[in-house]
């Protein structure tokens, strides 16, 4: 006689983290309303629209939370930006009915870069990112709005962003969502398909893609990151189905960029050093 054997159903350990997009959207709308309106008495949001899925999702969440008329999508092309970035960003403003403006940063960027003709792609990219943040903060001041951040958890963990630029808006609804979760949330929110399907890119050079720069796909990076953050070692991950070389790529990026996820290091000299002894929450 053979008895039936029942075993637990196992999820695939190497899958990227799941998301309930409806629940997440509801939670993030409440977050935006509380942080902007209840917490800061600000009813308007400024979102830099790159033509990518992160800023599109952020704009959709802001429109749901604050109403389309209170959301300002700002497109900030540089002379080398892909025309499709501009048109994809317009798909968002058109679909949502939010305000749209276009501020070309070429003159401002060239105004500085003309003195630095040898600046490599990384430096030029950082200059553009910091200029865009300058524009977003100034537009927010003009409009009585708050800049809303568009950085996702994956790029934050991999350090794939410009410090004190992409990460500088005071409120960010998607910063605890991995890229693959952002894609699923985008599907649920109805973000135009071209933005979901295209390869993510910082759009600094022709044919540049995030995944090409990083050397790993976002879906794989998300699965590895989520397990590393749960405490698994490289050996454990390799033993449970991950590619060791990909684990090492992710671990190296994570471990070399902790500084990017912190405020500047300040020399402590007193018993009242800010954020060391003098501790007050951001919303106090």
């Amino acid at each position: 006689m053979k008895l039936p054997v029942i075993e637990p159903r196992r999820g695939d350990f190497t899958q990227a983290p799941a998301i309930n997009p409806e629940l997440t959207a509801q939670w993030l709308e409440a977050f935006l309303r509380d942080e902007l309106i209840a917490g800061r008495s600000i009813e308007r949001a400024v979102v830099g629209l790159s033509g990518g899925v992160d800023s599109a999702v952020t704009a959709y969440l802001c429109a749901r939370a604050l109403g389309a008329k209170n959301v300002y999508g700002v497109r900030m092309p540089f002379k080398h930006s892909s025309p499709s970035s501009l048109s994809d960003a317009h798909l968002v403003t058109e679909a949502l009915g939010i305000n749209e403006s276009t501020i070309d940063i070429t003159a401002a960027a060239d105004g500085y870069l003309q003195f630095e003709p040898d600046a490599d792609a990384r430096r030029r990219g950082n200059v553009l990112a910091r200029l865009r943040m300058l524009v977003l903060f100034d537009q927010s001041a003009k409009l009585g709005a708050l800049p809303v951040g568009t950085g996702n958890k994956t790029e934050r963990l991999l350090g794939y962003f410009t410090w004190h630029a992409d990460d500088s808006p005071p409120v960010n609804p998607i910063g605890d969502l991995y890229k693959s979760q952002v894609w699923k949330l985008a599907e649920y929110l109805g973000v135009p398909q071209p933005l979901i399907e295209k390869a993510p890119s910082a759009d600094l050079e022709a044919n540049q893609t995030d995944e090409g720069d990083l050397g790993i796909t976002y879906v794989k990076a998300d699965a590895i990151l989520s397990r590393i953050l749960e405490g698994y070692t490289n050996d454990q991950l390799a033993g449970r189905g991950f590619d060791r070389s990909e684990v090492e790529i992710v671990r190296k990026r994570l471990d070399s960029t902790h500084w990017k996820r912190h405020l500047p290091t300040t020399a402590m000299l007193s018993n009242t050093a800010i954020n060391e002894f003098y501790l007050r929450p951001v919303d106090f």
């Binding site: 939670w27 409440a30 977050f31 509380d34 942080e35 209840a38 409120v171 929450p281 951001v282 919303d283």
Partner: peptide, 8 residues
Amino acid sequence: AGFEGGKG
């Protein structure tokens, strides 16, 4: 209830 510095 309510969000406190992002924590709901």
